[in-house]
Simulated scan of single mutants.
Amino acid sequence: MTRTALVVAALHVVGIGGLAATLVLDGGAGSITLVMALTAYGLGLRHAFDADHIATIDNTTRRLVREGRDARGVGLWFSLGHSTVVVGAAVLLAVGVQALAPALEDESSPWRRFTGVWGPVVSGTFLLTVAVVNVLLLRRALRAARSGGPGATHDHGPAGGPVAWAVHRFSWATDRPGRMYGVGLVFGLGFDTATEIGLLAMTASAALGQVPWYAPLPLAVLFAAGMSLLDSVQGSAARRAYAQAGTGAPGRGRLRYDVLVTGVSAAAAVGIGGVTLLQVAAEHLPALARVPGASVGLEPYGLVLAGVLLVAWVVGLLCLRQPRAEA
């Protein structure tokens, strides 16, 4: 059993164990607590299919594989960082709901206004940057392949200019799976996941007055368990798919595979990142609201993006398994 699977299993055990303890200690609120727990787990599963999650994990995994680095655990570390915000909000709810309630409930509060800008700006900028990194890596690989040099698989040659300077610093921040924890953490500060869990717990508490003060804690863990499960599965699938490019025989089929999967992955990141930043700007500059995409909701497109990437991987594998005679 891999370390990723062990961590995901441990989150489920802790979450279910905490839920069971809550039900035993406060049987009077058993039904509402159970409903809240199932809802929290479902929200975690759903949140893993957000378009920014899928594009971030996919592009980061693609880049690490392209550079010959270990890409195991990208999805898990990202989800753990993201879940930290939820767990932190749950702890605050447990020790003092009233202190956190205004920030969670009032959309006009300074905290909600700040996180409403912070989260989308961070995720949009990250996606655009990682797309640029992947395109640069592909361009170097294609250039090396045309020259017939040994760098057709991995080329780390230096480049100059401000773009290279920015890419170098970005690469340092994401050059191993463990550093995706920080990426997930700053994504989570957008406060959407914390709001979902916080308002869920507070609404039930206010409505029935029966939910114990410690009830939000297993809810947060169950949320993290659901999200980490699907994020880890996606990261593992992406790693295996992109690793095929390194094991295939050199030739046009391999290059077609590389161009296809990188193009789809980078295009998805650019599209999602660009729309995210456009929507933030449109909130402050009403004239931008007329730009196509400014009012598009990205929530339904997570499943669509997952399907598109799956099709790209399958088509790419067909390219690898149908070698053509090389000149």
Rank of each mutant, 00 (worst) to 15 (best):
G42M: 12
A55T: 11
T60H: 08
A37F: 09
L34D: 02
A37M: 04
G27V: 07
G28A: 13
T61M: 00
A48E: 05
G17V: 09
A55M: 12
L43C: 04
Y41T: 07
A37L: 01
D52Y: 00
D52V: 08
A20C: 13
G18S: 12
R62Y: 03
T56I: 09
T60P: 05
G42F: 06
M36K: 03
D50C: 06
A40E: 00
A48R: 13
D58G: 05
S31C: 15
A29F: 09
V65F: 07
R63T: 10
D26G: 03
V65K: 12
D26S: 14
A48V: 03
G30H: 13
L23S: 03
N59L: 11
S31W: 14
N59G: 11
L25S: 02
G42P: 14
G17A: 06
L64S: 01
I54C: 04
G27I: 00
L34I: 09
T33R: 15
L25R: 04
H47K: 12
F49C: 07
T39I: 15
S31Y: 11
G30F: 12
A37P: 02
R46M: 08
I16C: 10
R46D: 01
G30N: 10
L19D: 00
L23R: 11
A29K: 05
A40K: 00
G42I: 10
M36L: 14
I57Q: 09
T60D: 04
H47M: 02
A21S: 13
H47R: 01
V65L: 07
A21K: 02
N59W: 08
G17I: 07
T33I: 09
A51C: 01
I32W: 12
G44V: 02
T39D: 12
I16M: 02
I32C: 06
A29C: 07
T33N: 13
D58R: 04
A20D: 08
L64W: 00
T39A: 14
I16W: 07
G44M: 09
G44H: 00
D58E: 14
T60W: 03
V65C: 04
L43W: 08
D52G: 15
A55V: 06
H53F: 02
V24G: 02
H47P: 01
A48H: 11
T61N: 00
L19I: 09
Y41F: 15
V35N: 02
L23A: 13
T61Q: 02
R46W: 09
L19N: 05
L38R: 07
L43V: 11
G18R: 11
I54Y: 01
L43R: 10
I57K: 05
I16P: 09
I16T: 04
A48Y: 11
T60N: 14
G42Y: 04
I54F: 01
I57N: 08
I32Q: 15
G30V: 07
H53A: 13
V35K: 09
L25Y: 06
G42E: 06
G30W: 15
G28V: 15
A40F: 00
T56P: 14
G42Q: 04
